[in-house]
């Protein structure tokens, strides 16, 4: 049987295992909540993680276009980039997929049902996912610092302008009379 077919067939147990491994990065009480609560508004993190993982898995089987992968990968990384994780621990969940697949397909692999080449190719694609995750993680962290800087600017610049401490050149354009935009 081709590896792709096997992966499609075993989708459910592999996803469950992958999700479980991800949940183990949280304290036990939290993991229980993330798994149990089904309402997506009461449990946005659990919902985002699971939905994203499902999407990533599908994409992994169907060629992995980078724009599609990002749709599923971004929400997960965005959440983990603000949680209490080091950078490595934040994106490590991608490698858990390798472990989940190896565990779930152990029997088939031992019996030589899948070509080694196919399997190595799959692992390389998962490595690519990890690299995407790293890009996204860095983008999220950059965004946090940008937000901080913008917030400080917003607080002070208006104040200086309004107390007539600043007299900058007006913006060229139709609103020459100084109307704020």
């Amino acid at each position: 049987m081709k590896l792709e077919e096997l992966l499609a067939q075993k989708k459910s147990p592999i996803l469950e295992r992958w999700f479980q491994l991800l949940l183990e990065t949280y304290p036990a009480e939290t993991a229980r909540f993330l798994k149990r609560e089904e309402n997506r508004f009461a449990n946005p993190v659990g919902h985002t993680l699971y939905q994203g993982m499902q999407g990533i898995y599908e994409e992994l089987l169907n060629g992995m276009a980078s724009d599609k992968i990002n749709v599923f990968l971004d929400p997960i990384v965005r959440v983990r980039a603000v949680q209490d994780f080091s950078p490595a621990r934040a994106v490590a969940f991608i490698f858990f997929l390798k472990r989940a697949i190896r565990e779930e397909l152990a029997g088939e692999m031992r019996e030589g049902q899948t070509a080694l080449g196919d399997f190595l190719d799959l692992e390389s694609r998962i490595d690519d996912l990890a690299l995407y995750s790293f890009d996204l993680y860095m983008e999220c962290r950059r965004k946090i610092y940008e937000i901080r800087v913008n917030e400080i600017k917003r607080r002070t610049s208006r104040l200086l302008q309004r107390t007539n401490l600043l007299a900058e050149s007006p913006e060229p354009g139709p609103e020459q009379d100084g109307l704020r935009t």
Partner: peptide
């Protein structure tokens, strides 16, 4: 804060 952070 719990929902967002996962900190018990």
């Amino acid at each position: 804060y719990f929902i967002g952070s996962g900190d018990p």
